[in-house]
Design a protein around this nucleic acid. Sequence first.
DNA 1: AATCCGGGGCC
DNA 2: GGCCCAGGATT
Length: 351
Amino acid sequence: MSSNNTFSLELINWYSINKRDLPWRNTNNAYFIWLSEIILQQTRVEQGLQYYLRFIERFPTIKQLADASEDEVLKLWEGLGYYSRARNLHFAANQIVELNNGVFPSDFDNILKLKGVGKYTASAIASFAFALPYPTIDGNVYRVLSRLFTESTPINSSSAPKIFETLVMVYFNKQKPAEFNQAMMEFGALICTPANPKCPDCPLRNYCMAFETKSVSNFPVKVKAAKSLELFFYFLVINQNELFFIEQRKNNGIWKKLYQFPLIEKDIALNLNEIELEIAHFFKSNRFKINKIHPSFVHLLTHRKLNITIIEIGSNDKSLIDKYLMGDKNTLTSLSFPIALRNYIDRVILK
DNA sequence: AATCCGGGGCC
DNA sequence: GGCCCAGGATT
């Protein structure tokens, strides 16, 4: 297919008129573009925008990001979710400083070597920052392509990447890779939306096989996810003269490297008597008494339904100081906690 | 090849 | 209550 195919020209023309004015679109700085792509992984533009502005203000250069502590990067990321993105971003900044003297790599293979950068993100940076001809296939593009071609392969199946790479190359514009890629994603975000796509206003509906066959609502096809697991989290808040017992999550699983209060994690709900027994067992001590049990609330993750109960307990048992960090209110403010705990900390402890 | 990893907005 | 979002790492 020639790179000046009418589809790509009409798409790019639509984009030039209708694109949103976003800060990472007004720069050629590969570092800023990389940062925006990491923030926007599985994240809506409106949700990521303030984080992007915060990061480029605090870390104007890769070197400054690399020199920061992991805790500070996580704190700046607090509330955005998928925290491995922040850890990998920080790690990759150090990769760039050590291996390339702080200069962002300018070829696809070396961009792809950065931790946290997969094929999509490498293609996005390569095309946006360096005008290299790599197509981006994100969730938007999967959806747009599946409708254009009435492609029934589930977009989250293992065979999807190869099939949709072939489809995108039908229309890909190698002379204007940045414009084509951004236009396809913006088109998916604004016109060819998941629910209630704006087909009556669609400038490309003459190319759309799903529109022609009145089957737009059947695409994209997706394999249903497994039912999420329900868990019961009991956070134990110990406040001794304005010093709080906290710990950093280390093991594999959610919220890795974030901070939290001592946690009893169960797969069934506990009654009051069972909670008391669990606390005694947890601390191997009978010298704790419950001061307050806050109403339980549900915190939903993609694969988990967490029923969270925050329990304030008291003790004069000093034997625990070695096992936990002792944080004051300033510590609670400055460290990165899961958002469910952050809400409690801000509302109840810090007021 | 399947599973895990957050939080928020929309329907 | 389910789905989706400028996906990637791990097993």
